[in-house]
Design a protein around this nucleic acid. Structure first.
Lengths: 247, 247
DNA sequence: TTTAAGCAATGGTCCGATAAAATGCAACGT
DNA sequence: ACGTTGCATTTTATCGGACCATTGCTTAAA
């Protein structure tokens, strides 16, 4: 190695053309300069404006599409319409994370215990009459389905999500929607839905719903906490603590 | 409108070729048949195997890349390597959601109040000595920076995230990392970092850290709850409840 | 042995063309 | 007047080929 003068040039990263275009469009969307429902220019227009090839333009659009920021349709008056990413987008991302990392059921249930009591409290605070009616209807179907495990589980899921949605807290709703499906899937491998536990769950739901109906925030919080903590302790019992009785 | 026989044909969706390929590859990854670190076939190999054009193959790879499932490098011995999506991937998704929907600071702080006490409890339970040392070091820098608002905020953020990481609960860590940055950004528009409040925060952090060091789960939970609930009440005071004193 | 030049493999980018889908419009028949 | 059908138009989807840029390996030269 001969001695050379060492220049102080930092490593230069060459971003991809499609990434640059995607970043610019993304920024315009999050800043609100491209509101939901408005259409991006056509691919060929973007080619003309950006000076890039159609390949790069399309790569950028694919990125935005998989981020849930646009939705592309073909045909006349088609194109790429701005569509704000919904909670399902967050849920997909979390689900990928959970599944690829093999997150244990224990962690997911701990997560739920952290979140759902607050959701119940906020639901008691913010619920509308329509939301209450929906929860009540689900609860009645829940009671009726106590003998059919399959629909029992589905309705149970829906009821918890209905409470979450009634809370009005979008980030927490998204988290709850994100972890509900993995929890439900993982629960299939456990046998935590005995007839006795199902009866207990029905009672727990009843008192929680009463608290939410009465707008009793503390009661909703506490009863929901006992409910989900009970599930956690049954599914993943910890050392030294007996599974608490649910209800 | 003349009467016709109504056929029971459901709407037919024509999936895109790239979506199909992306789904297949995604499934192979989440099922573990393509472990992290392994390489996908080269683009040209995928073209040969799938019978699709290189455009479609590349579209599929772009989708997987933006999902954080692969990372593509150019050059000889380059290609698309399987990389499991990290918490940053979830954080990006949540951040997009929060920013595009204009989620209010109130909701984010409520979210934090729901999550951080549990994180403190789990940190008290699961912390390693190394994690405690990191938190303590950050705390000392926190105390020293009480007069420099900029570094104060940065260190504050890091300290909270350090506690989250010490909890060992990956989903909750991801959520915390996801909402921390938006909260910090939104806080800039509020004036909630007066010198007095900073001094109070230092005291709060001190007692929380003591509880975590002593592995006192309940104390960690309660003190963290008072701390973050105090922030919430100061930043977004609700009707009828005075902002609680922090500490 | 060391260095530099050349080669090979791979993704990045570009171009042009055709296929497929969706919409609007006009012609047609009733 | 009405509804239906077919055609034209616009747009994305897909294809095929070519060349460029980057990277790592190999080989030849000093």
């Amino acid at each position: 190695m001969t001695d050379r003068t060492t220049s102080s040039i930092a490593p230069i990263v060459v971003p991809k053309a499609s990434d640059i275009l995607a970043s610019q469009l993304r920024q315009m969307i999050v800043q609100g300069r491209l509101g939901a429902g408005t259409f991006l220019p056509t691919e060929r227009s973007l080619v003309a404006e950006s000076g890039l090839s159609r390949t790069s333009v399309r790569d950028a659009l694919r990125i935005l599409e998989s981020e849930g920021l646009i939705s592309t349709k073909v045909g006349r008056s088609g194109g790429s319409m701005v569509t704000l990413p919904g909670r399902d987008s967050v849920a997909r991302s979390v689900e990928l994370f959970v599944r690829t990392h093999g997150i244990r059921l224990e962690s997911l249930l701990e997560c739920r215990v952290a979140v759902e009591p607050t959701l119940a409290r906020l639901a008691a605070r913010n619920r509308t009459d329509a939301a209450l009616a929906e929860m009540t209807a689900l609860h009645e179907r829940f009671i009726a389905s106590v003998d059919d495990v399959k629909s029992y589980k589905a309705i149970n899921l829906d009821w918890h999500l209905a409470i979450a949605r009634a809370s009005g807290n979008e980030p927490l709703i998204a988290l709850m929607e994100a972890i509900s499906m993995p929890i439900s899937d993982a629960m299939d491998y456990q046998h935590v839905t005995t007839p006795e536990l199902r009866a207990i769950a029905v009672k727990a739901h009843t008192v929680i719903l009463q608290a939410i109906a009465a707008r009793d925030e503390d009661a909703a919080f506490n009863r929901m906490e006992r409910h989900v903590a009970g599930y956690r302790d049954i599914a993943t019992p910890r050392n030294g603590t007996k599974p608490a009785r649910q209800g």
